[in-house]
Simulated scan of single mutants.
Amino acid sequence: MKITIIAGARPNFMKIAPLARAIKSASEAGKEISYRLVYTGSKNDTSIEPSLFSDLNLTPPDSYLEVESDNFFKRTADIIVAFADELDKHPANAVIVVDDFTPTMACSLVAKKKGIKVVHLVAGIRSFDMNKPKEVNRMIIDGLSDILFTAGMDANRNLSNTGTDINNIYFVGNILIDTLRLSLPNITRPVNFDILGIKENDYVLLTLNKRDIINNDEKLKEIINTIINSSSKKIVAPLHSYVKSKIESLGLKSDRLLIIQPQSYLSFIYAAKNASAIVTDSGNIAEEATFMNVPCITLDNYTEHNETVTSGTNLLIGEDYSRIKESMEKIAKGEWKNSTLPERWDGRTSERIVQILLEEI
């Protein structure tokens, strides 16, 4: 069985790495299975640091489609043409796509048109807001998929409610946790921490990536000022240069606001694990915080994995940023909600996936 795995953005690699290892292990055990990893972006993509593949113990992609347009329609069209050519040169029995990015959707369409099985990893996510581009992608990808791997029972229900054949849905667990479990013994303290005098469990970790926050001056001001005024701890913020520049241009300053460069995967996990609290707009970080039992405040009213809220350490505050202060006070008093590990967050998701692939394809 030949499998092509698609990566369309940096976060995909954290979910692909354990699957690649599980496929390799099955192959070494005598199973007829192999994979080819395709990245739809450029080999020189600045969002992918050189250490990423070594941190994840993942072989770099076998192929780069070199599509980099910011225009949705051009990017989609270019990926469709490039991936069709890739499959002509390297036929596959199945194409595995991850999450809900535009490349995920484009490659699903190519595979389906070529009569190749489409396998969606982290299927069934819904915001129920069709004005969000990712929601459109999700509906298309799930509709095209022959096998749908879900991370939670909410996703199973979403798929069933939209008419997906239950025989094609498999609740395998959260594959991001496979990577996290394997990586925790190898995490490394960021060099910046020693330089800046940052002590474990004595800082708030802040991450910001979503454009609707970064490009909204009023939102950004309120978030940064509220965090600064809500805690006496240092605020460690690994931010891209354009976010740092935006914060500086707005005159948002504090001796406790420490903006550092984006970290490697293993260094970032160290920073997250040893924070007293995390404030983020990232769903992946909320999942990691739940597994590591770190209080997490998400700057949104929606999360891809509701179990981080119902079982885990995550709290959604929407755009009511005044709730940051209230939340910080609870954390300082040790009054944060109790957390339990969601079902099948056991680090064996990739093994379950490979077993199903061997049985179904």
Rank of each mutant, 00 (worst) to 15 (best):
Q261M: 10
D88H: 15
G251N: 14
F101T: 15
G312W: 03
I324A: 00
S230M: 05
K234L: 01
T290E: 06
F193K: 01
T303Y: 06
N225Q: 12
L250N: 03
A9C: 11
V279K: 00
C296P: 14
P342E: 05
N209P: 07
E32I: 04
E32R: 14
E135R: 14
A237Q: 04
N225G: 04
E49Y: 15
K89N: 03
H120E: 01
D146W: 13
P50G: 00
S350T: 05
P133K: 02
A289T: 15
I214C: 02
T303W: 04
W345R: 04
V191T: 09
E222V: 11
A275T: 10
K210C: 11
D55G: 08
H120N: 02
I278N: 02
G152F: 11
T102Q: 13
I141N: 07
P190E: 07
M153W: 14
V136H: 05
D320S: 03
K2P: 06
I260M: 02
I285P: 12
P342F: 13
K219Y: 12
E248L: 13
E359T: 01
R21T: 12
G163C: 06
S27H: 13
F291G: 00
Y242W: 15
T162A: 01
G197S: 06
L266W: 14
I235Y: 10
E335A: 04
I247P: 07
N12C: 00
G251L: 14
F291Q: 06
D346W: 12
S322I: 07
S245F: 06
A123Q: 09
R157D: 03
K273N: 13
F149R: 12
P262L: 09
T76I: 02
A289F: 13
E307D: 12
S69F: 10
I269H: 13
A275R: 10
M105D: 09
E218W: 02
G143A: 05
H305E: 02
M105P: 01
K132C: 06
K112C: 00
K2F: 06
G41N: 10
Y170E: 07
I213N: 08
